[in-house]
Design a protein around this nucleic acid. Structure first.
Lengths: 177, 177
DNA sequence: TTGCAATTGCTCATTGGTGAGATATATTAT
DNA sequence: ATAATATATCTCACCAATGAGCAATTGCAA
């Protein structure tokens, strides 16, 4: 942490932050880069079959966990409510997914793979898994697991954390309930 | 391509992959979630000042490293060529960034913070750093550093890795030069 | 029952960003 | 010098995805 230098010639400001903040900032940058770099490989892989990453994520979750409600899929792959409708529509047009009504709740719909969706996933998933593993070839499995554990902790914590608001916007919204 | 699956009742297929592939796949999912969760906090923070994450990333790099060529910024924050033009345009309209011509290369332009851009960053960056640190409060600094190191390795490796092509699309493109 | 709040999924206007090609300049080869 | 190629940025048509608002349905309470 030798960022104590003042005013550099070209007008750059040193990063001023506590050690803890610096670690977090650095991790944020590095995580963004790593995620983007790997996403590029993943996206290129599924694009060979005319799919976006979001579409593939839906197919994958339906393939590995079976049919589920649209809202459930939405929460799992983290898209907006409009997004899940849009994506399932598109996958339906492609003949890979179909909607099924839910007998116990007439508002709800299931998303499920069609036979074509099943066979497509059976065909392309192994290759996709290999692509991801290849993109992550920089570290041995043990390190990948250790890193995944840390990121899992970070992700769960950040998801549960309420959004902070700036002092100027802070307003009482009831708190509990 | 017969997957040795043990048909579950609801039609779900177990994930069939080698140990190495499983580690990579799991890390990919966990990384995506963690990144999305933290990005949500980061985006909400900068949105308070009417900025997107991409805009903030530009301001941040100019703030901390000083003026630099558009292409340099583009490579650093990982947006498309059209994207950097679009983003710098928008920041220019907001009065936070300005373009400067490059004396040694008349094709190139520098992007630099305006005084307003400088003072905005001086005002909001510390809060942003605190927001990120807060979102990453699940782990102590040491773990954050260790995780960053792994992700840095993964990111550099994945960035350098050429995109694989499926066997059906594989073509010779010369390689060198 | 009837009314009300919560939940599910859908519509649609909007947007942040992409990517192929265009333009202008620089560089290298002949 | 001329041509060919490479580089830096910009233009523009396009798109995946968002999110606020809506309609239908469910469940709960009085």
């Amino acid at each position: 942490m030798r960022v104590q230098d003042t005013e550099t010639a070209d007008g750059a400001h040193p990063v001023v932050a506590s050690g803890e903040q610096q670690s977090a900032l650095h991790l944020w940058v590095v995580m963004s880069r790593a995620h983007a770099a790997i996403a590029l490989h993943a996206a290129a892989d599924v694009a060979q079959h005319g799919l976006t990453l979001a579409e593939f994520a839906i197919l994958e979750v339906l393939y590995h966990r079976g049919a589920m409600l649209l809202g459930e899929v939405q929460r799992r792959i983290l898209v907006s409510s409009g997004g899940i409708t849009f994506l399932v529509d598109r996958l339906t047009v492609k003949g890979l997914v179909e909607r099924r009504s839910c007998p116990s709740d007439r508002r709800a719909r299931y998303a499920a793979l069609t036979p074509q969706g099943e066979s497509l996933m059976a065909e392309i998933f192994p290759e996709h898994a290999a692509t991801i593993a290849r993109a992550m070839g920089a570290l041995p499995p043990h390190d990948l697991q250790r890193t995944a554990e840390s990121l899992r902790t970070l992700g769960l914590y950040a998801s549960a954390l309420p959004e902070k608001r700036s002092a100027s916007q802070q307003r009482d919204d009831g708190g509990s309930e």
